[in-house]
Each structure stands twice: as C-alpha cells, then as structure tokens.
Amino acid sequence: MSRFTMYDRAEMARQSAEERQLFKDEWIRNKADQLATSFPECAMDFYPTHRGFHPYLVGLDSDEAQDAYAAFVESVCLAKAKKLYSEAEFMGEVA
C-alpha cells in the first residue's frame, strides 16, 4: 500500500472523527437549549413564594443573582444533555 493511500485514509478518519465530534457538540447544545425552556426565565420566578419569604428578601433581585441562576440552569441542562446523549449513543439512536 502506498504512503499516499495511507495518508488519505488517515485524513479521512480524522475528518470523520471531527464531524462526529461536531455532531455530538451540536446535539448536546440543542438538547440543553430545549431543556432550558422548562426553567423559569428569572431567578425570582424560581423561588417558591409559599415559604413566607419574598424573593427580594433573599437577594434574588440583583443582576449577580440572575447571572448565577443563568449559569446554574446552563450547567444543569448541559449535564443532563450529555447524559441523554450517552444513553442515546448506547442505545444506537444517535448515528
């Protein structure tokens, strides 16, 4: 087998692996975005009001609290999406 053929096969394998990784990353990002829609938009809406405390009293009205809430939602959704991808991959549902 010539070295050019070996190089072409190695290049094709590298491109294929890169395409699979891009597909995986896109699938996970789309699933995380889909999961994020089930969370409230605002941190103040996430806090249960039936406990007798108002969200303003616990500090959920600040921009920092909203940023922390957004980071929380993103990390939870990404973790769940990664788990769902690995399960789908195991079951053969993802190409």
Rank of each mutant, 00 (worst) to 15 (best):
E19M: 14
L60S: 03
L22R: 15
R51N: 15
R29T: 10
A43D: 02
Y69P: 00
H54E: 09
Y56T: 12
F23K: 06
Y47S: 01
E18I: 10
D61Y: 09
H50C: 09
E41M: 09
F39H: 03
L35M: 01
A65Y: 07
K24I: 11
F53D: 12
D25M: 08
A65V: 04
R29F: 09
E18K: 11
R51D: 12
A68Q: 12
L60G: 04
S38Y: 10
T37Q: 13
L57P: 05
E41W: 09
P48K: 00
D67H: 13
R20V: 05
R51V: 15
W27F: 06
P48Q: 03
Q66P: 12
F53N: 05
A32I: 00
R20A: 11
Q21L: 12
I28Y: 01
H54W: 10
Q66G: 07
F53E: 13
E64M: 06
D63A: 12
E64Q: 09
Q34H: 10
E26T: 14
D25H: 04
A68L: 12
A70M: 11
E18Y: 12
C42N: 14
N30L: 12
L60A: 02
S62W: 05
F39A: 01
E64P: 03
E64H: 05
K24N: 08
G52R: 04
A32S: 01
P40R: 01
A36R: 02
H54I: 00
M44T: 14
Q66C: 07
E64N: 05
F46R: 13
L35A: 01
A36N: 02
F23P: 04
H54A: 00
